[in-house]
Amino acid sequence: MSLWPVYTGSSAPHDGIDALPAPPPWRAFDGGPPLPPARDEDADGGAPGRVHRARTYQPTPETVQLVNAALYLRRPLLVTGPPGSGKSSLPYAVARELGLGRVLRWNVTSRTTLTDGLYRYDPLSRLYAAGRAGDIGGPDAGEATAEASIEDHLRLGPLGTALLPYERPRVLLIDEIDKSDLDLPNDLLHILEEGQYEIPELVRAARSHPVAEVMVADSEDRVPVRHGEVRCRAFPFVVLTSNGEREFPPAFLRRCVRLELRRPLREQLEDIVRAHLGELDERDHALVDTFLRRGSAGELATDQLLNAIYLTRASGLTAPSRESLAESLMPYLGRAADCWDADDA
């Protein structure tokens, strides 16, 4: 029996992912043999900041709906919004609530290529290892040893790891996709559509070395890759974030579930502050007023408000100094607020 919503936004961990219905026939994948679920970041002593963001994330009803749509349809979620709107915190919250293990993170720049996300191969270290083996074992030993140990010079990237045949979907954050080279979104189309890829270096060695034990992106663990091909079993929950700085190709957009995050209103802001720092007092409400007033004239991020409230609480400053400090912690980030709203309209 299926369950809607699988992701509730409550932050309370549960096994609702096991009630996720079978994918649409055109989004079914059969990779194998299956790998056990990824380890939980809390249990592994993950970075405290990431764990805190996952526990305190406050999704809107629309966010909950569209996260579930992406999970059911096995489609990437393209999240657009101003800085500080919680785009990169969302995948950590989903992973924690649904028990999907550590989030795989791929930070995109203008120099990023598809191969960077799939795997990294170091031919120089392999050549050096082959030379050493040849010196020790004769003229044929180096070639045989290097071919058999090619996996020692190769490591899967975040995207490549997410597409392994895990029993439960991995969570992959592709951060700031709008900063990428113009070709990267199109290059991602085939991979995200087919849920599989090849590693040419392992394909070439498959005749004599059909199974390679390859290191994954987020740990020292190794997984078997057969004949150089990786194919997913449970399609990963992929979150692509964008600051809205560029347009994407229509073919790319139609393959994504699209979520647009907007600036939180007063009630949402107070809920966010409460989740991070506890109940608000009169001084905190005054800072929320200041944030909303300044936000009507320029672009601000929610974490600027959190920084201001935390610091004014911790410093024990009197009212005039506190207000001055708060204003200094809320500089405008860029273009005016009315420009962003016009783009969103």
Rank of each mutant, 00 (worst) to 15 (best):
L325W: 09
E245T: 13
G278T: 09
A130S: 13
L77W: 02
G295E: 01
P5L: 14
A336Q: 06
P224I: 06
R102H: 13
D44F: 08
E327W: 03
P331M: 10
S324N: 10
L156P: 01
T80E: 15
Y197C: 01
Q58K: 07
H285V: 08
L20H: 02
T63W: 01
R207N: 07
V51M: 07
L35H: 04
L240A: 12
A234K: 04
P320T: 07
R27H: 13
V64Q: 00
R313T: 07
L261G: 00
Q268C: 03
A206W: 04
C339N: 06
R126M: 15
T161Q: 02
T80N: 07
G137P: 00
P34L: 11
A301C: 05
L300T: 09
R226S: 10
A314F: 14
A275T: 08
R294V: 02
R226F: 11
H153A: 14
P224Y: 05
R155F: 01
P82C: 07
R263C: 02
G45H: 05
G31S: 08
P264I: 05
P82T: 11
L292F: 05
Y57A: 00
E213I: 02
L71F: 07
V238I: 15
A162S: 13
V203Q: 05
F235D: 00
L287C: 03
V108T: 05
K87L: 02
P25M: 10
V214E: 10
D303K: 06
E151M: 10
G32P: 12
L306A: 03
S180F: 05
A28D: 13
